[in-house]
Design a protein around this nucleic acid. Structure first.
Lengths: 242, 242
DNA sequence: TCATCACCTTAACAAAAATCAACCGCCACG
DNA sequence: CGTGGCGGTTGATTTTTGTTAAGGTGATGA
């Protein structure tokens, strides 16, 4: 509800009901898209929707996992820190993507820290409620499993790429993903800061910069956060060669 | 392995019934340990148990995922190959570990190739049956989710380590895992070939060898595939420093 | 308007890792 | 017995990447 661009802080005082856009996001998520609206509603409670400012954390690694989350709007990064204090960006989630289901379900602690990288709206689903509903609703359980399956596959690919591709090749791969075409040329914007992409691809900002410079020789023009790829196929060839 | 188990082939002419050891393996697996024996039995059919020789493949990347697998005995490596033909060992599974649930459940294709690295016994569970039983048995669904959650967490850690640790540090980490102690000294055998460990850790055999050489300076002695760690804490300190 | 700051880039250097090549020891096999 | 192959090691070299340091550019705010 609420006008689709209406002042959000207005009716924040009490229960926050999902807005029209929120419902769109929920509907687009692979986890909830095929589920009954009533069921989804039953998962929500008073403080289900949180507005999170850029830089704010949604949850912290090693704290008890009491919720799973769905991005309704915005962008969230999933960061993991090692005992030695190093940080690694594991993945980045946009609207309609769920995360932390696994942690919430296994009744353990969050295995990553989540942080909004732009102002975001997050749906928080209580872990206990979630477990209940899953137990009572087999199709929901299957949807959860499918969702976990997707996450697993993404991570799998990520590992593969980290192990077998050089930095520039990983960047090429990332750009090809964004272009979402199989041939011809493409132009688009980088979805977030280069530092963040660099970290996501497992390299330093400096290496990222150099990698981008290297791709220039393959028909990739970069101005600010605008990217132009002359020849998608050529870029793919480069990627596959490493 | 065939000695101390009861008469098995007696009443089921064609069916291969799990041996006593097989039941032990099944019982130890996080996926099946808490489930009713009847349910587990209902998942099996005539060709559920396969004996796989070293080097044989259990399934191939991109082929339709019609089964999920449980290692009953032996060792299996999970390999992923990129479009460019590179190979990366994603993980290695021993007895009681399940894999490919995700692919089997999402009705898609295998996202990795599986290969036995020593002679092994594998339990193959039909994907359709699996989905049926999950739909009909909520606790089973939750067990599957928990299992997926564990796999997810392992991969997450793997990504983090690949991104934030040097080769020698990853090796130290691997050895500390094997030692399974928090202090003192330890001696044990490497569970499989060094090449394989190297690939699993995301480095070449040469780098592995050199990394091992580097750890020698930290009280790690290696002879053939026997490892001795003088001081676990010292090694951990080294690992955490990178 | 200027100062400041965050993001990004570049360069020079150092560290880490891959590559190329040679070699050892062991074992299976003719 | 040799001999070949495989797993492993080692050395020399190159490539890749991180590090350190410096500078540039655009947005923001006093």
């Amino acid at each position: 509800m609420a006008a689709n661009l209406g002042p959000k802080a207005a009716h924040f005082a009490m229960t926050i009901e999902p807005s029209f856009e929120d419902w769109l996001s929920i509907g687009r998520s692979s986890l909830f898209s095929k589920l009954d609206r009533q069921l989804v509603l039953s998962l929500l409670d008073d403080d289900s929707i949180a507005t999170v400012a850029k830089g704010e954390k949604i949850c912290r690694q090693n704290e008890p996992a009491r919720h799973c989350h769905v991005v309704l709007a915005g962008l969230v990064k999933l960061v993991r820190q090692s005992p030695g204090g190093q940080e690694a960006v594991i993945s980045i989630h946009g609207p309609s993507q769920t995360f932390m289901e696994a942690d919430a379900l296994s009744n353990g602690v969050y295995s990553t820290t989540e942080e909004a990288i732009i102002d975001s709206r997050i749906l928080r689903i209580d872990a206990v409620t979630l477990r209940e509903k899953i137990g009572a609703n087999p199709p929901f359980a299957l949807a959860m499993l499918a969702s976990a399956s997707v996450h697993l596959k993404v991570l799998l690919e990520h590992v593969e790429k980290l192990k077998s591709m050089t930095g520039p090749a990983r960047l090429a791969d990332f750009l090809l993903d964004l272009a979402a075409q199989r041939s011809g040329s493409a132009a688009f914007q980088l979805p977030y800061e280069k530092q963040l992409i660099a970290s996501h691809l497992g390299m330093t900002p400096e290496s990222f910069s150099r990698a981008l410079g290297q791709l220039r020789g393959l028909g990739v023009r970069a101005d600010r956060n605008k990217i132009e790829i002359e020849d998608i196929q050529r870029l793919r060839q480069f990627r596959d060669a490493r």
